[in-house]
């Protein structure tokens, strides 16, 4: 077992650095990515290594620089466009939802759009609701893009590298609340992730990638399947510890990418456990969570012992108040309650 200490933010940086060393067409553009060294220090040191031609500070003009990235991708470059927060990308919606994912289709396959959009996603920092968006449900609905919500430094690195090697628009929704996770090594992670270093990327392996569309079982179990991604994976693992005391053994399936979705792994797990709770950090209505529930009902109707339940952000704007914001998010308490309800043990 490695004693490695690598933060989530460092894993993202490693992915970008390794791919940029391999491919001269890759550049990083965004607000404060260069001289400021990254508003969240994700790109720290990258200006020094790659210079201002490839690490480009943009003005606060998301429509402009997101769209510029798309034009550059059409020309043949491989842009990484960083949104300081995904909450800020909505002003660029026409570019990232109309131009990027549809370019290949609308041009009859002539122009691809190999671009990576990445940045912080999700609430939890008392920023008020405008800065607290979780974008996965709105964006996963759009054909032509791929979307990942990594939950660990290992996944953040492996998925981003796969996205950078790919030919399609790739949206990496990273968690601001998790950027520092891994600073204390495995101590920062649930004991379920310790064995086999499920949380850390392998050291000195520049070829390491994680294929998009491959779910990961973060904890095996027999009684109930939890399907989730991103930060809520850790809430689910926290719930697993509490439920273990009650003799309930849950399986945590981290889908890692909502689009494409590894429905096969989910189905196999639900066929084994016969019960399922879907946890998703966006609002419940027409969400990735509701999509997964629909899929499970279509495919596993005869395997289920009861309806699939869901845990989401509550259906309100994120409140500023620290405690009420935590209440609003998916959390271990809600997941624990949902599992017990799904197993008729409430």
């Amino acid at each position: 077992m490695s004693e490695r200490k690598i933060q989530y933010r460092e894993a993202i940086r490693e992915a970008m650095q390794e791919e940029m060393r391999l491919d001269a067409r890759i550049f990083l553009m965004g607000e404060e990515v260069g001289e400021y060294n990254g508003s969240y220090k994700v790109s720290e040191g990258m200006l020094e290594e790659f210079g201002p031609r490839r690490i480009i500070d943009s003005p606060i003009a998301e429509t402009g620089f997101a769209g510029l990235g798309i034009g550059a991708a059409m020309y043949g470059l491989k842009p990484i466009i960083e949104f300081m927060s995904w909450s800020f990308c909505l002003v660029a919606a026409d570019q990232i939802l109309n131009n990027a994912p549809k370019m290949r289709y609308m041009s009859g396959g002539q122009f691809g759009c190999p671009i990576v959009f990445r940045g912080n996603n999700g609430a939890g920092g008392q920023l008020g609701s405008t800065h607290s968006w979780s974008m996965e449900s709105m964006f996963s609905s759009v054909p032509g893009l791929k979307l990942a919500v990594p939950s660990t430094p290992r996944d953040a690195k492996g998925l981003l590298k796969a996205g950078l090697k790919g030919q399609d628009p790739f949206f990496s929704l990273e968690s601001e609340r998790m950027l520092g996770m891994g600073a204390r090594g495995r101590k920062d992670f649930s004991r379920y992730l310790h064995d086999g270093d499920l949380w850390a990327p392998p050291e000195n392996d520049a070829d390491f990638t994680i294929p998009l569309g491959l779910a990961d079982i973060k904890k095996a179990g027999k009684d109930c399947t939890i399907v989730t991604a991103g930060r809520p994976v850790h809430f689910a693992l926290e719930a697993a510890e509490a439920l273990e005391k009650d003799g309930i053994d849950i399986e945590v399936v981290d889908v890692r990418t909502w689009r494409p979705l590894d429905i096969e792994t989910i189905v196999k797990s639900v066929q084994k456990t016969g019960a399922c709770v879907v946890v998703d950090q966006s609002w419940p209505f027409a969400s990735v969570g509701s999509e997964v529930v629909a899929q499970i009902h279509e495919r596993c109707f005869d395997d289920l012992d009861g309806p699939v339940l869901r845990v989401h952000n509550d259906d309100i704007a994120a409140p500023y108040n620290r405690n009420r914001e935590q209440d609003m998010l998916p959390n271990a308490r809600k997941i624990t309650e949902a599992v017990k309800a799904a197993l008729y043990r409430a």
Binding site: T63, F65, I70, G71, G76, L77, N98, F111
Partner: peptide
């Protein structure tokens, strides 16, 4: 939405103004 890559025709784009960042991006490339 007329595209012709071989002729350097990067498309007609139907959302008004949406082509402007693309033009800047091609020039950036």
């Amino acid at each position: 939405h007329m595209f012709d890559k071989d002729r350097g025709m990067y498309g007609g784009h139907a959302i008004v103004g949406g082509q402007c960042p693309l033009g800047a991006g091609i020039a950036f490339g």
